[in-house]
Design a protein around this nucleic acid. Structure first.
Length: 885
RNA sequence: GGAACUAUAGCUCAGUUGGUUAGAGUGCUUCGUUGACAUCGAAGAGGUCACUGGUUCGAGUCCAGUUAGUUCCACCA
């Protein structure tokens, strides 16, 4: 937009976005340093995975953050947005393994651990920055100079420190127990990495013969017949009279013919199935617990690869679901199968590969959660950390109160290797902050490190302080911890937010963030989750290419409320693009009329429209700032949109045109230029956090004080410019103009041509309307405008409309269709009378008069008066029309 | 089995502490091209605010229940 004479009519985002992003980066506007004494504002980015590719969720999440960051930067806060990415252990390992398989036909085992990990690092170097470059296309203003990685030296040091410290406190332990196991990924998973889905299945009723009693059976019901070979008991409820006499007896396991006892345990629900349940301690968490209580043997029949073990006898070597089929067939053949029922139940799937998770016994590392949760819950219940919207608090605390120990070991290679060494000589185990060369206990050099890596969320949990240099007490931590806001989707409150709160409270003894700003998901136009398998995802870069980053950003933020999901519509994208173009053209208009602008020129007194728009600007500044403070970003965006389009463009610019076109009246012209420029610059500032590129482009062309809009000062409302009188006068005039346009459209009166009009104006408005009748002439298409007092004679043979304080008459004798006009007026009359009825009802209600606040009563009284006046005028008018018939 | 969210115009959604004539965008109908913008302007039609009851002078807004849809949590075979 630098060449004033050749500004394209249509805004072209591609031609300006790159330019300004480079300009901002070159000038280091994104960079923050600790400056003691300055008010801080800080956010740590939810680190995207290095395998990541920008999707709509990122676009939304990062735009929200960028708006808060840019706004606070303009408010003069010392603003840090800490960027980085996550190594995403399992996800990345799977990704690289796929590539390895495809390109070289090899598995990670072919390469060996060291070589494989080296390959992942190479992959990270090559692709890790892809998503960051995509974020830059969105206009994201992170302090890229500080970019961190969960596996960089500093973050890794923090991981070691936390692990060893928790180990020393006894809060990390190694244990053998039943955990979620993915037979495909070949690793243990934490509880929340298992997604439960209701799946239709069957309930098989199987009878187990009672040993020593001919033709006596105990029938159990199971959803997993393939685990029968692992049964080591059948349990019934001790209160259950049906089975009382069987307790203590022995059953013979069908097919396998092993003998197992009937035990009693109050866990058994007498109402489910037959009230008798087979117990497989190695393959079911409840059975595992029961096995411990009753000292039952554990027989592993399903291996870590999902294949039946030798213990499964005739089924050894079969895949677990194939085995299920075979066992059911055998049971049927041999007469053990009593019946099959349809049964829907929740089945756990691996979050990564979506295979069915197998509960298996294995040795893993756990974080003991109970001692850690209290502080993390307290800081939320006492309000030190607040969820926005507040309703997510309950979600969080409820989960925390029922938390189980966190399984943190993964049988994978990519990630932080567990910093524990085992001595082959003395058998001791040692956790260490530094890599060990020899056993601290016996000095032996025959030691080896634990093979497992940590859950990727272990390092993410430290992100708010590991990125700022912890465990050192850095200047960065001193100024920017706790961070101000954490912005994320509700889908990772448990994975990430909860664990950051836990680790922050434990290691920093302070909250990691003051606010947790939660947003929803971006769904497709049918409300479905965007997913690869459905192929319904929209690529944000495609939207940016076609419509510009500003459009995508504004579209994502407006039209929804915090915490709720939103739908993606191309129509909404187009609507927002039109808004960008509207701004562009308003600015283009301003520029084309800026010729000879001198900021020190002598100004004429402000006109009504000047006073009105300046007053409205102050209102808007207050509204927008207040809404941003309450995290109502969508509403704030709408307020800016409405101000620019419906007030500045639709009214102010139109009214200012005659003054801007008239070069003879220099002071008047300069005044209009000054007001228009002021209003536009302020509006661009308000809009800048939402639409950074177009606002910068426009700002640079308009008279401006800062070298970039992004470091300019956020507008503050000037109370002296708030002018209720001007707003009232202007509203009356605008209402009159709308009434004129309405009547003209109604009868299609001389479109494009000018017509005369007569206005009857109430005393208190006469002066302002008389002084500004040019507005009415200009925008109503009126050539001869006559003003009369309210009680003066009403024009005959004219169309009429009544607005607050003004009656509008258009002498359109020849064009009036008496019939239609009467109809129109009676409709109007009906709604007015209905309103009046309601208002009078209130005013005649003693309870209302006694209890409602005075200003509300006054408002109702004024409304009543106004309606009475209007109704009277419309009635007179109708009487007149009746005479004409 | 718990819990949360959603229900407002044809469609997508706003509506802060209860006090409006219930709004916007989009779609629809009608009209409009000479110096910002047809990615535009003007006008219009279109809603018993899911249902039932309650609190209140007053409810789209608060409370209880019902229905429908979505989601999260939960070890019942």
């Amino acid at each position: 937009m630098t060449e004033e004479h050749n500004i394209p009519k249509v805004y072209d985002p591609a031609s300006v976005e790159k330019k300004w992003y480079e300009f901002w980066e070159k000038n280091r506007y994104f960079h923050a340093e600790a400056e003691p004494g300055k008010k801080p504002f800080s956010i740590v980015i939810p680190p995207p995975n290095i395998t990541g590719k920008l999707h709509m969720g990122h676009a939304l999440d990062n735009t929200l953050q960028d708006i808060l960051i840019r706004w606070h930067r303009m408010m003069g806060d010392n603003t840090l947005w800490m960027p980085g990415y996550d190594h995403a252990g399992l996800a990345t390992q799977i990704k690289v393994e796929e590539v390895l398989k495809k390109e070289e036909g090899k598995t990670r085992f072919d390469l060996g651990r060291d070589e494989f990990v080296k390959r992942v690092w190479e992959w990270k170097e090559e692709y890790g920055d892809r998503i960051i470059n995509q974020l830059k296309c969105l206009g994201i203003s992170c302090d890229w100079e500080r970019k961190r990685f969960t596996m960089d030296e500093g973050c890794s040091r923090a991981v070691r420190e936390v692990f060893v410290s928790l180990y020393e406190k006894g809060l990390i332990y190694k244990g053998t127990r039943i955990t979620n196991w993915c037979v495909n990924c070949h690793t243990a998973l934490s509880d929340i990495e298992v997604e439960h889905e209701d799946t239709p299945g069957h309930l098989w009723y199987v009878r187990y013969p009672v040993v020593g009693e001919e033709d006596t059976y105990l029938t159990i019901a199971t959803t997993r017949p393939e685990t029968i070979p692992g049964d080591t008991a059948v349990a019934v409820n001790p209160e259950d009279e049906r089975y009382a006499k069987l307790i203590g007896k022995t059953l013979r396991l069908p097919i396998l013919n092993r003998e197992i006892p009937v035990i009693a345990d109050s866990y058994v629900d007498t109402k489910f199935g037959t009230g008798a349940v087979k117990i497989t301690p190695s393959h079911d968490p409840n059975d595992y617990e029961m096995g411990l209580r009753h000292n039952l043997p554990e027989i592993v029949v399903i291996g870590k690869d999902g294949v039946m073990t030798e213990e499964a006898g005739p089924f050894a070597g079969m895949e677990r679901y194939e085995c299920r089929k075979q066992i059911v067939a055998r049971l049927k053949e041999e007469g053990y199968l009593v019946k099959i029922e349809e049964h829907s139940h929740a089945v756990g799937h691996c979050q990564r590969c979506h295979n069915i998770v197998e509960p298996l016994v294995s040795t893993q590392w756990f974080v003991k959660m109970q001692p850690l949760v209290k502080a993390a819950v307290d800081c939320v219940t006492d309000g030190r950390t607040q969820f926005v919207p507040e309703r997510f608090t309950k979600n969080y605390t409820g989960w925390m109160e029922n938390i189980h120990d966190w399984c943190i070991s993964r049988q994978i290679w990519w990630g932080h290797r567990i910093p524990v060494w085992y001595c082959d000589d003395c058998g001791e185990m040692s956790a260490s902050r530094t890599d060990l060369e020899k056993c601290p206990h016996c000095g032996s050099t025959h030691i080896h490190q634990d093979e497992d890596a940590l859950d990727t969320w272990f390092s993410s949990a430290l992100w708010p302080f590991s990125t700022m240099g912890w465990p050192d007490n850095t200047d960065l931590l001193k100024q920017f911890y706790p961070t101000s806001v954490l912005v994320t989707g509700y889908d990772i409150i448990f994975f990430w937010v909860a664990r950051m709160l836990i680790m922050g409270m434990e290691f920093m003894k302070d909250i990691p963030f003051e606010k947790v700003f939660i947003h929803g998901l971006v769904r497709d136009s049918q409300g479905r989750k965007m997913s690869k398998s459905l192929g319904n995802g929209i690529d944000p870069l495609e939207v940016i290419d076609k419509y510009g980053a500003d459009t995508l950003r504004f579209m994502l933020i407006t039209g929804n409320t915090p915490g709720n999901d939103m739908r993606f519509y191309w129509e909404r994208v187009e609507g927002t693009r039109n808004f960008a173009n509207k701004i562009w053209n308003a600015s283009r208009f301003a520029l084309m009329n800026m010729e000879g602008y001198d900021k020190d020129a002598e100004l004429a007194p402000y006109t009504l429209a000047d006073k009105w728009i300046l007053s409205r600007l102050q209102d808007t500044v207050k509204d927008v700032t207040g809404l941003l403070e309450r995290f109502e970003l969508g509403e704030a965006g709408r307020a800016i949109y409405d101000f620019i389009w419906s007030e500045v463009c639709d009214w102010y610019i139109e009214i200012a045109k005659p003054r801007l076109y008239n070069k003879e009246a220099a002071a008047e012209r300069a005044t209009a230029q000054h007001v228009l420029a002021t209003v536009l610059v302020s509006a661009m500032k308000l809009l800048h956090p939402y639409m950074p590129f177009i606002t910068e482009e426009i700002y640079q062309c308009l008279p401006h004080e800062a070298e970039s809009i992004m470091i300019s000062k956020w507008p503050v409302a000037d109370e002296s410019l708030i002018d209720p009188e001007a707003e009232r006068g202007m509203n009356a005039i605008m209402d009159s103009i709308k009434a004129i346009r309405n009547m003209r459209a109604e009868v299609n009166a001389n479109p494009g041509k000018k017509i005369p009009a007569v206005l009857l104006v109430a005393d208190d408005l006469r002066e302002v309307v008389a002084a500004n009748d040019s507005y009415i002439k200009l925008l109503g298409g009126i050539d001869n405008l006559e003003l009369r007092a309210m009680d003066a004679e009403k024009p005959e043979n004219a169309m009429a409309a009544v607005v607050t304080g003004i009656e509008v008459y258009l002498p359109l004798a020849g064009l009036i269709d008496v019939e239609k006009e009467t109809q129109r007026l009676s409709k109007e009359l009906a709604t007015m009378e209905k309103d009046l009825q309601r208002v009078s009802g209130k005013l005649n209600n003693a309870g209302f008069l006694a209890k409602a606040p005075e200003d509300v009563i006054a408002k109702e009284r004024a409304k009543s008066e106004e309606l009475t006046g209007k109704i009277e005028a419309v009635k007179k008018r109708m009487a007149y029309l009746a005479e004409l018939k």
